[in-house]
Design a protein around this nucleic acid. Structure first.
Length: 272
DNA sequence: ATGGCTTACAAAGTAAGA
């Protein structure tokens, strides 16, 4: 049996619901995790997704900003939906559910704060928030937030491109928010605390460029190809080991009225 | 020339993204 998991920062799920439906139909994931839904709780465009067979939806949204959701063909464990509030804010940056019969797998969907422009926490409150968010994730996973016996998958827009070839120019971006050493060290700590394996880099060697986001501001995003890998798929070791395939749907950046992020898909050989 | 754009919103100009 195979489980296909996808993650996509959609930058308004209501504006781009047709793109979501196209993706679900053409790539046939079992579960799609969305970030930046920008959709108030209760106003998620569920109907067209249900019509495509995705009748299980965990939404955690608010007006205007942020917001995450999990859209699934497979049922969730009863009462398994959780949304953790980070940094004492109710800003809808996490939702998790549990899948699977014999071997439960908890799926975490995260939207880590972008962090603003200036990579200095003493003068930029947004950057301070980003670092504190990472610290809180670290502490949460270190404490063993995972139920014992449960494996896990963590996906989302983590807003950090940790490796040299996760950005178009390592040298130029070391001082740019998303690729600064203090952020990448923070992300490394989160990964270690949860014993998470970077599934994308298991499939694509670290010396090859790998991007999931291209700025709206580039005149020609495709030709310039100045991307960053801001979106991630992590899993606990046994789950990561079962991953048979990875796809970054770069073409989606060229669709009509696109998001600036593209879907990332991983297949796992799991009983679900 | 990595922001030159794009989004939401008690709708014109702000705030936010990254």
């Amino acid at each position: 049996m195979s489980l296909r998991v996808a993650t996509w920062n959609i930058n308004s799920v209501r504006l781009r619901i047709d793109n979501v439906c196209r993706f679900l139909q053409e790539w046939q994931p079992d579960v799609l995790c969305l970030q930046e839904t920008k959709c108030p709780q209760g106003q998620f465009p569920s109907a067209p997704l249900r019509d495509l067979g995705f009748g299980h939806i965990a939404e955690h949204g608010q007006k205007g900003y942020h917001g995450v959701a999990i859209v699934s063909r497979l049922p969730f464990h009863e009462n398994s939906q959780h949304s953790r509030a980070f940094c004492g804010k109710g800003d809808c940056r996490h939702v998790s559910i549990t899948l699977g019969r014999d071997r439960p797998v908890t799926l975490h969907n995260f939207y880590v704060p972008a962090g603003g422009d200036e990579p200095d926490a003493s003068i930029n409150e947004k950057f301070d928030h980003k670092l504190k968010f990472l610290d809180e994730m670290d502490g949460w996973f270190a404490k063993g937030s995972q139920k014992s016996g449960h494996e896990g998958i963590l996906v989302g827009d983590l807003n950090i491109a940790p490796l040299e070839h996760d950005v178009w120019s390592h040298k130029d971006l070391l001082k740019v928010v998303s690729h600064t050493p203090i952020e990448t060290r923070g992300l490394d700590r989160v990964q270690a605390a949860g014993k998470w394996v970077d599934v994308m880099r298991q499939h694509v060697p670290a010396d090859q460029k790998l991007y999931t986001w291209w700025s709206y501001r580039a005149k020609d995003w495709d030709a310039a190809n100045r991307g960053r890998r801001l979106d991630h798929i992590w899993a606990t070791a046994p789950v990561a080991k079962s991953s048979s395939r990875l796809e970054v749907v770069r073409d989606a950046r060229g669709w009509k009225q696109p998001s600036d992020h593209v879907p990332v898909i991983a297949d796992f050989d799991l009983e679900v």
